[in-house]
Design a protein around this nucleic acid. Structure first.
Length: 506
RNA sequence: CGGGGUGUAGCUCAGCCUGGCUAGAGCGCUAGUUUUGGGAACUAGAAGUCGGAGGUUCAAAUCCUCUCACCCCGACCA
């Protein structure tokens, strides 16, 4: 296993993208499947990314006037039934609790004590939060009500994939109630913008902001806005959604207030959420054939210091020096926080140690050996460069230099992803045949990475969406930035006003 | 829920068709020796009620029945 040109991950992205994705998660030690059907264990390196994402987003949620609260995991079955579209959307994937006690019978524990009314494990919390909102709101003076909760939810999915679709996942769900439609719609816009900023500035994921078609809308919503990202297999990933719910849920839950005119009126509500799926998006956007590449802003460690100990008796000296360098680095600031540094003193072989960090995607590696100590230098490796590309930096300059390099990496990942999306977005297709050609792989046995985003006109006829399913594509969204031109629908050829993004999706 | 497949050591799998010695390999793990500014080599070792239950048989990982779990392809989805 000398393999100078060998990549750390097998298969390569180009060979088998879904398998590559699984292997990266394993190699980077982000998560693993648990013995519970469809559920995952998020391991420290993956959870660390989530915690940092959480912190960034939580700050922004609070800065836009929201407060955190917590509502029950269990929802009475009857609550779900209050909103017709909502039931239809979620009923099939609900986990249901029907008993509350176990009794021993023939050596086996069996459920006893049947509940009078079954409880469902929340797939989302509109109904249970609506119940509270109804109590909290009496007057227009109680509005707006702006609440967020960090929670886990359960959706009994048929097919699961780590981070992208698991039976249980972590997310945040915001729920707000307003006195006017205008205000509620403005809230929906605000939160979409928060998500866009989170995705682009923190996760380095370029996204398209748009509106969902009726067919793709959240069950029970009047309007659904979304951010859509392109993965390296050119499929779209819905990375976040913000919904204007009109009065649908306030009517279902009885969220009523007395307005200034002294009349009872139903509130206008919104909800919005992002989940651990975003971590999947980060993996599929930034990962390469050597494993994960973590954007510095959510890297649990920015820098790992690897002491190089050629002879056992030098260990003490090298470790001590590595600790000193680490301490100096921690005094530097990146993204308004101290640089996160770890000294890797594990008793394993050097090559293995180095590669474990390459696969985890830590932005910077620093190696320090006796020769470097003598010369007052360290060897710096950047994850956005080749794994062997080194740079010597004097120890004195190091703390000043690191934040700038982290910014460069963060920005570089974003630019690279954006370039990839642009290179794989077509705006010049105008007929269904061209669309079909674009979204059909050349190799039908083992489809190669193909397709991408197509931006084209759509006549807003829902029949179009049915026809698109032949090509296994959907309308991802109607971008918020519309050209305003009229043209011909790419599917029907009819007069069309709306620009839409067509793509295969996760 | 339809169609296909797989359950054998921590992981990846061979063995099953055609029943028969003490159930194997690679990786990983443990120890020792050598090596090491780089994803080491050698030697030794630990590790398995062959998914579960029942049946056929002198004899079952292997054949039969039932059952459970997981994976892949569809329909559903943050």
């Amino acid at each position: 296993m000398s393999g100078k040109n060998k990549n750390a991950i097998s298969p390569l992205r180009s060979e088998d993208y879904p398998e590559w994705y699984q292997q990266v998660i394993k190699a980077a030690d982000l998560a693993e499947v648990s013995s519970v059907r469809g559920c995952m264990v998020i391991k420290p390196w993956g959870y660390g990314m989530w915690e940092l994402l959480q912190r960034e987003l939580d700050d922004r949620i609070k800065a836009t006037g929201h407060e955190n609260a917590y509502f029950p995991l269990f929802i009475p079955l009857s609550f779900l039934q209050r909103e017709a579209d909502h039931v239809e959307g979620f009923a099939k994937e609900c986990a249901v609790v029907t008993h509350h006690r176990l009794e021993e019978k023939d050596g086996q524990l069996v459920p006893a004590g049947e509940l009078e009314e079954p409880l469902i494990v929340r797939p989302t919390s509109e109904t249970i939060i609506g119940e509270s909102f109804a109590k909290w709101v009496q007057s227009y003076r109680d509005l707006p009500l702006m609440i967020n909760q960090w929670a886990n939810v359960v959706r009994w999915e048929m097919r699961t994939r780590l981070f992208l679709r698991t039976a249980e996942f972590l997310w945040q769900e915001g729920h707000t109630a307003h006195a006017t439609e205008e205000e509620a719609r403005a809230e929906m816009d605000t939160m979409l913008e928060v998500y866009r900023e989170l995705a682009e500035d923190v996760l380095a994921l370029p996204v398209i902001c748009g509106e969902k078609t009726e067919g793709e809308r959240f069950p029970g919503a009047t309007t659904t806005l979304c951010i859509e990202a392109m993965m390296q297999d050119r499929k779209a990933l819905q990375a976040g959604t913000s919904h204007y719910l009109g009065q649908n849920f306030s009517k279902a839950s009885g969220i009523q207030f007395l307005n200034k005119e002294g009349e009872q009126e139903f509130a206008y509500t919104t909800s919005w959420g992002v989940s651990t799926r975003l971590i999947g998006g980060v993996i599929m956007t930034h990962g390469d054939d050597d494993g994960m590449r973590v954007p510095p802003k959510i890297a649990p460690k920015h820098v790992v210091v690897i002491p190089v100990v050629p002879k056992a008796e030098l260990e003490g000296e090298v470790f001590e020096y590595a600790d000193k360098v680490a301490a100096a680095l921690k005094s530097a600031t990146y993204d308004r926080q101290p640089v996160r540094v770890q000294v890797d003193k594990r008793d394993i072989r050097g090559g293995e140690k180095t590669w474990s960090w390459v696969k985890k995607g830590v932005p910077l590696r620093i190696e320090i050996g006796p020769r470097d100590i003598e010369a007052g230098k360290v060897v710096l490796f950047r994850r956005d460069r080749g794994p062997k590309e080194k740079e010597f930096v004097s120890i004195d300059e190091l703390p000043n230099k690191i934040p700038g390099i982290l910014s460069e990496i963060q920005d570089g990942y974003y630019q690279q992803a954006k370039k990839y999306r642009e290179e794989n977005t077509r705006t010049d297709l105008s007929t269904f045949d061209e669309l079909k050609e674009f979204f059909t792989p050349k190799n039908t046995q083992k489809p190669e990475i193909h397709g991408g985003f197509v931006r084209a006109k759509w006549c807003e006829d829902s029949e179009v969406e049915k026809k698109l399913s032949e090509l296994k594509i959907t309308i991802r969204c109607m971008p918020l930035e519309q050209s305003g031109d009229t043209g011909k629908c790419i599917v029907t050829g009819k007069e069309a006003k709306k620009d839409a993004i067509f793509a295969k999706a996760y």
